[in-house]
């Protein structure tokens, strides 16, 4: 166990095992595991903190800057938390032709995502919802397309958004009570 692991009591045994399993898939160069470990970290903690960068760097015998450099290059890797429910609406041509900009505005309005925290990225006051534009999701035949966290949604309509939100709000209530 290295120094950072000791500082991170929330790191479970299973997390470390999973990290080891990932590293074993790159027998030629551990450095290749940088992005996979960033994915792993983000899946667990929602975003990649400086601590995360530090831990991954130590795990892979790299300077933290080498990991930082990756974390800041790839749009899917985040350095700060986003909504608990993240809408990612495809902005690119086929989806735009099918009305994705209207869908984007509709989600923004419905989720009251009023705070613009980055270019094309909005978060709701309570931090529960975020909506952002992403580029082509490779499902253009079913435009407009979006992702809700890691789930893909095709042929999105305002009615579908309503149904999804109703469902999420019900789920959220369950969590809270």
């Amino acid at each position: 166990m290295n120094a950072t692991e000791k500082d991170l009591p929330q790191l479970e045994e299973s997390f470390i095992e999973e990290a080891e399993r990932i590293i074993s898939q790159y027998p030629v160069s551990k450095r290749s595991a940088s992005l996979p470990l960033l994915h792993l970290w983000q899946r667990h903690f929602g975003f990649v903190s400086p601590q995360g960068v530090q831990w991954i760097a130590e795990k892979l015998d790299l300077e933290p800057i080498a990991v930082e450099e990756i974390a800041t290059f790839y749009p899917m890797i985040r350095q700060r938390p986003l909504g608990h429910y993240q809408f990612k609406v495809c902005r690119t041509l086929s989806c735009a032709l099918a009305g994705s900009y209207e869908i984007f505005e509709y989600i923004k309005k419905s989720c009251k995502t009023v705070n613009e925290v980055g270019h094309h990225v909005y978060v709701s006051e309570d931090g529960k919802f975020s909506v952002e534009f992403v580029e082509c999701l490779a499902a253009c035949g079913n435009a407009p397309v979006m992702m809700l966290n890691e789930e893909e949604w095709m042929d999105v309509t305002q009615t579908k958004i309503d149904a999804i939100l109703n469902h999420l709000i019900r789920e959220k209530r369950k969590e809270e009570f």
Binding site: S29, Y74, P75, I77, V134
Partner: peptide, 27 residues
Amino acid sequence: IYVFRGAGAYICGEETGLIESLEGKRA
């Protein structure tokens, strides 16, 4: 054979960008 996941950058489709990315660098 192993699976390697990209992270939202189009340039990783270019084959040498892909290789750099797989080596743990910017694409």
